[in-house]
Design a protein around this nucleic acid. Structure first.
Lengths: 149, 149
DNA sequence: CGGGATTCATTGGGATGTCCAACGGTCTCC
DNA sequence: GGAGACCGTTGGACATCCCAATGAATCCCG
């Protein structure tokens, strides 16, 4: 049933859902990255800062598990964010192996601005779709995502 | 209207369409990569091989333009594909600056197998969706993608 | 209560993907 | 015929991703 493909091999690849999703994701990624660059953050920094904000004083190993980022990279990201005054590493008195990472007030303000910027970028990404279609897309993507834990 | 976010900053990020699309794209990417690894190809190699197949004898600069890949990387990818006997670089007699890149019969056969494998991987990616929903998703992604030329 | 296994943060290195700069060789066009 | 553009190639910067090893601290079980 799959017709002879060799003559349209590239078109075939570029018509696959995986390729299409990749392009859309790349554009969304780029839009959000451009938006939050205003605040001096890159995407991984933003994610880490948000995770620290959400999970209060948190150990780095917890960030590794929650975000699925490599421990090495967490160290580097936290270095940058700490140098920028957006978060703080302090020793955990209850377990001297751990760092208790917390957000500074400045970090919270930056995060609030980034939330707005990221939403605007996503609005631009979805601008070709109607509100109903945006909801549909979210629902479909969520279904695919949740089925792959 | 945007409620106070700082307490759910990570959840907020992870509920954005850009993040969701990124996760789905990453999974699709991984599934396809795993599938075509059977043929000894990685994703960029597959794309380049497909482009060479589709555009007949083609200069490397044309591949750079059509695929949006850096010229340096095209060189490396072609080196690998040529060593594997999947394509051929021969001097273009009409322009001695150019290489005329063509697919070998073996390359064509590999490409046919990869087409099937990539389709199977995409079927697995979309397995949580009904046929109608798959069509909807494709339509929505296509609309977003086409509006960003 | 003591000692082996585990966890923590950090450092290092390798493989990969993306991008920019420069180079000699070749062609185009005026 | 000569200036400018284009070709393939090489080199290096930079971020991401994965694996391994370290010393310090804690946990658990016998």
């Amino acid at each position: 049933m799959t017709a002879p493909e060799p003559l349209h091999a590239l078109q075939h690849i570029q018509s696959l859902p995986s390729w299409l999703a990749g392009r859309v994701a790349a554009r969304g990624r780029s839009l959000v990255a451009e938006a939050i660059a205003t605040e001096g953050l890159k995407l991984p920094h933003h994610a880490v800062l948000a995770a620290v904000s959400e999970y209060g004083p948190v150990a780095q190993a917890d960030l590794v598990r929650r975000l699925g980022i490599d421990a090495k990279d967490v160290v580097l990201l936290l270095n940058h964010l700490e140098d920028a005054g957006l978060l703080l590493r302090s020793p955990d008195p209850r377990d001297r192996r751990k760092n208790a990472v917390t957000v500074t007030p400045q970090g919270t303000r930056t995060l609030e601005r980034c939330a707005t910027l990221a939403e605007q970028a996503n609005a631009e990404l979805l601008s070709p779709l109607s509100p109903t279609e945006r909801q549909q897309l979210m629902m479909l993507l969520t279904r695919i995502h949740e089925s792959s834990d």
